[in-house]
């Protein structure tokens, strides 16, 4: 069992070497990169915006409802919303959601190509299929921190709307709260995490799709396994990066 996991991890790193060897012609690659940006980044904006806005609102309301002590200023609602959204919600939890959305899309699309011999067709033609399929995804997800930035903004905005229009605090208190004790490095930390998670989001599902064996049923199984492993790796990396960057 352990050997199997170690062998899989080894295979994953060997895949990295293959991704960067024998590059596909730039004129073809350019088109693929734009397609992946459309599928992976722009195609995720809607769901990220929706979730961020409402979760930001929920964080804000729950903070407000737990403030029973009159000595605690109402500015804490904006402060808590900002910290929750920037430190954890936007980079980590959106990434877990993206492991489901983006990850299963990547695994199933590459897995279907494996099942229908399209990957064999690429190889037989002399195309480096890993470079052709995974490299454009890697480049596209470099824009992933941009999604996280939008999530940060919309999460805070959702918090503002819920807190102010829900009657929990005033607009000025919430905005003051957003500005109190602001540590710019926390945003940097969030973007570093987003960058690392983006790499995991592109490569782990690709690995599971590319090396899958079997038919349509196995494509579904590979998508599930890819989601589980991407999530586990994101959570582990979240812990490691937090230890490294914030302590």
């Amino acid at each position: 069992m352990l050997l199997r996991y170690l062998s899989q991890i080894g295979k994953y790193f060997l895949m990295w070497k293959e991704i960067f060897s024998k590059q596909t012609k730039w004129s073809v690659m350019r088109v693929l990169i734009f397609k992946e940006i459309d599928d992976l980044i722009l195609g995720s904006l809607g769901i990220v915006a929706f979730i961020s806005f409402f979760v930001g609102g929920v964080v804000s309301i729950q903070t407000a409802l737990n403030l029973n002590n009159p000595l605690i200023p109402r500015t804490i609602i904006g402060y808590a919303t900002r910290e929750s959204v920037i430190l954890e919600f936007a980079p980590t939890f959106i990434s877990i959601i993206m492991a489901g959305k983006m990850g299963s899309f990547i695994t199933s699309s590459i897995g279907s190509m494996r099942v229908t011999e399209q990957i064999d067709a690429l190889e037989v033609m002399g195309v480096n299929s890993l470079n052709y399929l995974v490299f454009p995804k890697l480049i596209a997800v470099l824009l992933y921190p941009f999604i996280i930035g939008i999530s940060m903004f919309l999460g805070s905005f959702g918090g503002y709307i819920a807190a102010v229009y829900g009657g929990f605090t005033t607009s000025s208190d919430f905005i003051d709260g957003l500005q109190i004790n602001f540590v710019p490095f926390h945003v940097t930390y969030a973007f570093i995490k987003a960058f690392v998670f983006a790499i995991l989001l592109a490569t782990i599902p690709s690995f599971h799709g590319y090396y899958m064996k079997g038919g349509a049923l196995e494509v579904g199984k590979a998508s599930t396994v890819a989601f589980v492993w991407t999530s586990v790796t994101i959570i582990l990396m979240n812990y490691i990066l937090t230890q490294l960057l914030l302590t």
């Binding site: 229908t116 399209q118 064999d120 067709a121 190889e123 037989v124 033609m125 002399g126 480096n128």
Partner: peptide, 17 residues
């Protein structure tokens, strides 16, 4: 890889993209 560019292949399931 060069040799493979001299090869055409018709797969059982066509394998069209």
């Amino acid at each position: 890889r060069e040799l493979r560019t001299e090869i055409g292949m018709l797969f059982q399931g066509s394998a069209l993209f």
